[in-house]
């Protein structure tokens, strides 16, 4: 399944610095939760590990990240990440396009992220993927800003919070269900129940 996310955000840093950071795969990887680069294949290709928890599914991927396009003049960068689950449960592909624009001291970043998921994660996580992708993206932007500000990224923020997102969704569904069941079996009158809640 495919998820597409378009997002624009501002970074209070000059465009040249943002650009410089984006060209450094290790810096980018540090900001993407769950990702660790393990090997440089060439100037534009890197190997890495990706861990992701999506609701009931745990996956860890052997990934390759490629700088598919670097256009210094247009300040445009295309990153492609491909990962295959180590246990053969499926694969993930992410295409990230970023375009930078200077606006005073601030850099505008226009991004489009396309995520394609195949296998068990798509089957069981299909309802969660767009929420989780959105969340990961938000985490990436926050981490990236932290890094550009010269601060350390929290260890916790280097981990994916997807599981937590999934957990919240599942929890809210469960609590709705439980309260429904409660309503059916409850002998208390409505007023009393409301008071208790």
């Amino acid at each position: 399944m495919k998820v597409s996310i378009d997002k624009n955000f501002e970074i209070a840093q000059p465009v040249s610095k943002v650009w410089e950071y984006l060209l450094d795969p290790y810096k980018v990887a540090e900001c993407v939760p769950g990702v660790k680069l393990t090997e440089k294949i060439s100037e534009t290709e890197y190997k890495g590990d990706v861990g992701l928890k999506l609701g009931p599914v745990n996956a860890s991927f052997n990934g390759v990240i490629t700088y598919a396009k670097v256009d210094e003049v247009a300040r445009e960068i295309h990153l492609v990440g491909k990962g295959v689950d180590k246990k053969g449960k499926g694969s993930v592909e992410m295409a990230l396009e970023m375009k930078l624009q200077e606006s005073g001291n601030v850099t505008m970043v226009n991004t489009t992220m396309n995520v394609t998921v195949i296998g068990v994660m798509a089957q069981f996580g299909s309802r969660l993927i767009s929420d989780v992708s959105d969340h990961i993206f938000k985490q990436f932007v926050e981490n990236f800003q932290t890094l550009l500000a010269g601060k350390e990224i929290d260890d916790q923020d280097k981990q994916i919070h997807g599981g937590a997102v999934a957990g919240t969704v599942v929890k809210s569904i469960t609590s709705k269900l439980t309260s429904g069941v409660k309503n059916i079996f409850s002998k208390k009158d409505k007023k009393e129940e409301n008071e208790n809640e």
Binding site: M1, K2, T116, I118, G119, A122, Q123, S126
Partner: peptide
Amino acid sequence: YDDEGNILNGSFMD
């Protein structure tokens, strides 16, 4: 099914 061949409701959850 989606275009990638995933079944999107292959359990009684969906």
